[in-house]
C-alpha cells in the first residue's frame, strides 16, 4: 500500500492517517510537501520581518543614526529573521526525525512524515500568533494559547517565562499527535515513546529559553 501525504486529511482524521502510514510500504509526495513547508515558513517569516516584528530591540538606533543607516541595519536584521525561517523547519523536521528513527525501528521516511505533520502545525501556529501579535502588540512569550502570560504574572525571570511561553495548547496537541503516531508505528512500549517525544520537546524549550535568557542582543 502506498501512502500519499495529505496534510489536511491527515490532521482531520489522525487515526486513519496513523493506520495508513503504518500499513504503507511506500510514502509518496513527501519531498514536495516538505519543500512547500519550507516555502511557507520563509514566506511567513518574511512577512513578519517586513512588519518589523521583533525589531524593537534595535529601535533605539532610530534617533542615533541616520535614517538610511537605521534602515540598512533593519534590512539585515530582517534578513536574519528570514534565514531563521529556513532553519526553523530544518531543525524541527530532521533532528527529531533522526532522534525517533534512531531509538525505534520505524523507517526514516515514515518518521519524517509524522514529523512533517507536527512541524506543519507548529508553523501554522506561528503564522496565527504573528497575526495576533501584530494586532495586540504581543511579545513572543505572551501568546494567549501558552503558559507564558501566567508565568509572566508570577515571575520576572526571563528563563522561566520564556520556557513556559513555549508550552502552548498547540504544542500539547503536537506532542499528542507524535506520541499516538509513534505508538501506531512502533512496537516499543508506549511509556518509552511518550518519554521520547516529551524529552525532545523539553530539550528544544530549554535551549530556546536559554537563548532568550542570555539576551544576545546585548552584544549589540
Amino acid at each position: 500500500m502506498i501512502y500519499e501525504v495529505r496534510l489536511i486529511k491527515g490532521l482531520l482524521h489522525p487515526y486513519d492517517f496513523f493506520y495508513q502510514l503504518q500499513k504503507a510500504e511506500e510514502v509518496r509526495n513527501l519531498t514536495n510537501r516538505i519543500v512547500f513547508l519550507f516555502i511557507a515558513s520563509i514566506l511567513i517569516f518574511t512577512i513578519g520581518a517586513y512588519f518589523g516584528m521583533g525589531n524593537d530591540i534595535i529601535s533605539n538606533e532610530l534617533t542615533s543614526v541616520s535614517a538610511g543607516e537605521f534602515e540598512a541595519k533593519k534590512l539585515f536584521f530582517a534578513l536574519g529573521q528570514i534565514l531563521w525561517g529556513v532553519c526553523y523547519p530544518a531543525l524541527l523536521l530532521f533532528i527529531p526525525a533522526l532522534y525517533f528513527w534512531s531509538l525505534t525501528d520505524i523507517p526514516y521516511k515514515k518518521v519524517l512524515t509524522l514529523q512533517f505533520f507536527a512541524v506543519s502545525i507548529l508553523i501554522a501556529e506561528k503564522a496565527i500568533f504573528m497575526f495576533l501579535a501584530f494586532q495586540l502588540g504581543l511579545d513572543k512569550d505572551s501568546s494567549p494559547l501558552s503558559l507564558g502570560i501566567i508565568a509572566q504574572s508570577l515571575t520576572d525571570n526571563l528563563f522561566v517565562t520564556s520556557f513556559f511561553g513555549q508550552i502552548s495548547l498547540i504544542a500539547i496537541f503536537v506532542i499528542w499527535l507524535q506520541y499516538k503516531g509513534l505508538v501506531y508505528l512502533s512496537e516499543r512500549k508506549p511509556r518509552v515513546l511518550f518519554l521520547m517525544v516529551l524529552s525532545i520537546h523539553l530539550l528544544y524549550w530549554l535551549i530556546s529559553a536559554l537563548l532568550s535568557y542570555i539576551k544576545f542582543e546585548k552584544l549589540l
Binding site: 520581518a49 525589531n55 534595535i58 541595519k73 536584521f77 534578513l79 536574519g80 534565514l83 531563521w84 542582543e217
Partner: peptide
C-alpha cells in the same frame, strides 16, 4: 545585525 535578527 543578521545574527541578532536570526536569534530573535
Amino acid at each position: 545585525y543578521i545574527f541578532t535578527g536570526f536569534i530573535q
